[in-house]
Each structure stands twice: as C-alpha cells, then as structure tokens.
Amino acid sequence: MELGGSTILYACVYATILMGFLGIIFKENLVMKIIAMDVMSTGVVALFVLVAARTGVRTPILTASPLTPYADPVPQAVILTAIVIGFSIQALMLVGVMKLAKDNPTLEIRAIEEEYRP
C-alpha cells in the first residue's frame, strides 16, 4: 500500500473513531462521555464522506457534460440520515443528563452507578 493522501486521511479518520471510543471508556464525567461519543460519531461521518469521495469529489449533479469524476451520492444520503438520528439521540441524552444533574451535580459515573445499583 502506498502512503498517499487518502491512506493518511483514512488513518486520521480511524484515529478519530478510536479516540472517541477510548474517551467513552476513560472519561469519568457523564457529559464528557457523551462528547466522546460525539467525537466517535464525527469520525464515522467522516469515514462515510471519505468513502463517497473515492470516485471523485465533484458534486453529483447531472449536467450537459458529466465528464468530471463525481462523488458517490449514496453514502452521503445515508449518512445524512445517520447524522439526524445521532443528533437527536444526543439531544435526548443531554436532556436526561440535565435532569440527572439535579441530584448528582458532579455527574461522576462511578458515583451514579453506585447509587442506583439494585
């Protein structure tokens, strides 16, 4: 495998996903965990965009002379759905955290788990 531009891009994208994942595990505060999850999902979105761009980077609009290599619209359409879903889930989780913060102001996950263990 040559070490060209796209390989480095892929490496960066996967590194983002991995860092988000590790953040979910190692951050102790619930809000930080949710932000880490957002980082991870940003990485996934970037991966979709990168895969879409492998056939070209032009906007896929039908013109009289469609000669320039254009981006694959399918992954972009799919990820648009996923972005909307991801954002609504995040909003929902943050509302939940806001309510939870009234009784657990520090939002430390260990303390919360200890308190609500059956």
Partner: peptide, 14 residues
C-alpha cells in the same frame, strides 16, 4: 421520571 429509571434508560441508549 425517577432518577434511577432515567439512569437505566440513559445507560441503555448510550
């Protein structure tokens, strides 16, 4: 809407 169920739900969604 109790804190406990909220945490359980949050954990599930996460």
């Amino acid at each position: 809407r109790s804190d406990k169920t909220l945490w359980v739900a949050l954990r599930y969604l996460f």
